[in-house]
Computed example of a mutant assay.
Amino acid sequence: MPPISRGEVSYITGAASGIGRALATLLIAQGGRVIIADLNSEAGAEFASELNKKAGSIIAIAIKTDTTVWEDQVAAFQQAKNTFERIDYVFANAGIAEHPWLPPFDPETATSRPLVKPDLATVDINLTGQLYTAALALQTFERQEIGPSGFRGKLILTASVFAYYPSRAMPLYAASKAGIINFMRSAAQYYASKNITVNAVAPNLVDTPIAPDVLFVPFRERKLLSDMQLVLDQFQKFLGGSTINGQALSISQDNVWVHPADTHMFEENDPACELISVELFKLFGDNTL
């Protein structure tokens, strides 16, 4: 699998724990430098300190970042550029588990309860926050020259198999991850000719602090968790000189696959879908063909 070039820089949201922390560790081991963008400033700073102490130099910086706040992410990107001059890889990874968006369904008590505003925290973090990261990544790449691996930059988003499969207990989590996958596929087409790749990794449940540990117990007992190393292996496939673009690499336990785009009725819809892109680019003043 393609390694990164020594000294390349990665901006990782949610890097103080879970998949993000594992990614940072992997990239540092390959000679990279990392920006740990995480809301948990204490854990992020401690992790960066550990990495720097072991390396004997500044190879990691931690920046307190609420990914749902645009200004936070702008400041984090700017600090990253000021410290390391460029950013080669951006991992839009920060996410949370499902927050119940409505009260449990109960017709017997419904009339005695007021209508409530839905809790959209899951979408705010898992979709809007990642799109803020993506927007800054793509504009940063646009403003820098081609790097040592032959690209202006690479954007990798963390999705989930629930981007494809419904979950009656996680409608907003599924909606947010489906949004990430369709954004990835669309952006990958747009940036394909611009020395920028856009991809996603979509695992099933991985043993991380994203949820209380008690949730993972039955999954451990039934061996239904996806292995962290296998997840990292899929991220690795997009790095370095890899030309992969627009793929959703998916993991469930020991199974790995490239999840195909939906082609049902594609031929019938493609002429209109393609024409809308052409016409919208004209309206947007974009010279992309």
Rank of each mutant, 00 (worst) to 15 (best):
Y89V: 03
L23N: 10
D38G: 10
M228S: 08
L51D: 02
S10F: 10
L26Q: 15
I36E: 09
L275N: 13
P107G: 02
D119G: 04
E85M: 10
L232S: 07
L120N: 03
F151P: 00
E274R: 14
P2Q: 13
R21K: 15
F219D: 01
E71Y: 04
K154Q: 10
Y165S: 10
W70F: 14
R86D: 14
V231Y: 09
T122C: 07
N126Y: 05
A169S: 12
A94I: 04
T68A: 14
Q144F: 00
G20A: 03
A24T: 08
T13A: 04
R143P: 00
V69H: 06
S17W: 08
A178S: 11
K194P: 01
Y190C: 00
G14N: 12
S193L: 12
I59C: 13
H264W: 07
S252Q: 10
V116I: 13
K53T: 15
M265Y: 03
D119K: 15
A187M: 13
Q189W: 01
Q189M: 05
M265I: 01
E42G: 03
F91H: 14
M1T: 14
I63P: 07
T133S: 13
Q234N: 14
R33N: 12
I180M: 06
I196L: 08
I210P: 00
V278C: 12
A134F: 06
Y165D: 08
A43N: 15
D233N: 12
I276M: 14
